[in-house]
Design a protein around this nucleic acid. Structure first.
Lengths: 233, 233
DNA sequence: CTTCTTACAATTTGATCATATTCTGCGGCG
DNA sequence: CGCCGCAGAATATGATCAAATTGTAAGAAG
């Protein structure tokens, strides 16, 4: 009786969600920081800095960093410096070509698997996104915009392509923040409405073409912002 | 002034190549084992097994594994087991689409940067490859075939695309070995000769189309082998 | 006399290892 | 048939060693 002591062998964590290993938690946290512009291009990161900042051990941080580096989200430039890479003009061209071929294909596949339920979730996401734009909330815009695309690609049931595209987003994510910082959220057109219409019609081919347009539009926005301000060395 | 004494200060590398960190050495070693079929699809790997097999510490092995997993060369299936993934039919379709769009683009870019010197190196590689085929040397075939493509993609000066395609090769590499194991090296046609001719002509567009054909041919070989023997569970 | 260059030292950072802790899977016992 | 305990493997920690960057001081040149 007296054993009010929970002991129970595994009280995992009052805060729940502590079921994931630490290295993955660190990875996801860093990933979001890069993807949503909390880390600026050119900014350096150190292992020991992160161990203290995130209050984690050294090994999980090392593994997360190694993973991010292999995904291109960070670069191991030269000797001892790991930084968020600055996107070059050539790199932007590569990303443009890859996105404009891969993402339409994912969109077509998603269109063929689209259900009413998923479509409603997408509409909700787009509404939240537009509210963020109206509010001038850059962080909210970046988050919801990514979520909108991620939801579509998750539907495509094409894990290899989806993973690859995700890694592409990691490469231009930081620059997206720069774009918003320069132009604000007021001039950020997208083709999400057309896309939702195509999904509602079940027109996979059209959805793919619209997505191609959306991607092209986004990349040229980045290109314009990067040329206007040719990366402060 | 005349001090030809280099002051030593930085003896770059007496022993050569002994300068790389262990985790990268382990990574490259494992990568080759996967890419060239020393590890079969479905085969499981354990951390402790590798620490003894490669005589390395635990930390470097962990990092190499994590990196390979993030590149799709290994899968973290379920709880605590890491295996070489078996290629599904759907996965093969994805890989086919991606390779048939990405590799021709890389080939076109490479064609525009091709020099006499590089072309000769490619011809040498193809000769070595054909000798391996005649000899029935599966390992030699796999190695040289990869090297042939890798040389082209290195020329393309498109690091993001090249990295992505490299990761694709990691995913179907193990299956290539299976194909060869079933059919031998005698029936392994490729379009390398046509490709070299297009390079020699400086015809980038044609080179891209030939590469698309080469890729399609290779993927359908894998598909045939996989269907004939639907992956022994 | 001031300033630039160079060399040395100290601190910071990264890599590796040995070890402790926890979680999963399995086999025996009630 | 189900529960408990044991073994094995993976995760995570901290310490230790090596290397590099940075700061400082001294010397030479203008």
């Amino acid at each position: 009786m007296g054993s009010e002591t929970p002991v129970s062998k595994t009280i995992p964590d009052a805060t729940a969600a502590a079921k994931r290993p630490i290295h993955q938690h660190v990875y996801e946290r860093l990933r979001n920081m890069i993807l949503f512009g909390d880390l600026a291009p050119g900014q350096g990161v150190t292992i020991q800095g992160l161990t203290t900042a995130l209050d984690a051990g050294m090994t999980p941080v090392r593994e997360a960093l190694r993973r991010l580096i292999s995904e291109g989200a960070l670069t191991h430039l030269g000797n001892r410096r790991v930084t968020v890479p600055e996107l070059s003009h050539a790199g932007l061209d590569e990303l443009g070509f890859m996105r404009e071929t891969l993402e339409p294909e994912l969109t077509r596949r998603a269109a063929e698997r689209m259900t009413e339920h998923h479509l409603n979730a997408l509409k909700d996401c787009d509404n939240t996104l537009n509210q963020a734009i109206d509010r001038g909330d850059i962080g909210g815009y970046l988050t919801q915009n990514y979520r909108f695309h991620a939801m579509i690609y998750a539907l495509a049931d094409a894990p290899i392509m989806a993973t690859t595209v995700d890694q592409l987003w990691l490469r231009f994510g930081p620059s997206l923040r720069v774009v918003c910082g320069r132009y604000g959220t007021s001039n950020l057109p997208d083709k999400h409405a057309e896309l939702l219409a195509a999904f509602a019609d079940g027109n996979a081919q059209l959805a793919g073409e619209v997505m191609a347009g959306d991607v092209a539009q986004g990349m040229s926005q980045i290109r314009a912002a990067l040329e206007g301000q040719p990366v402060p060395r």
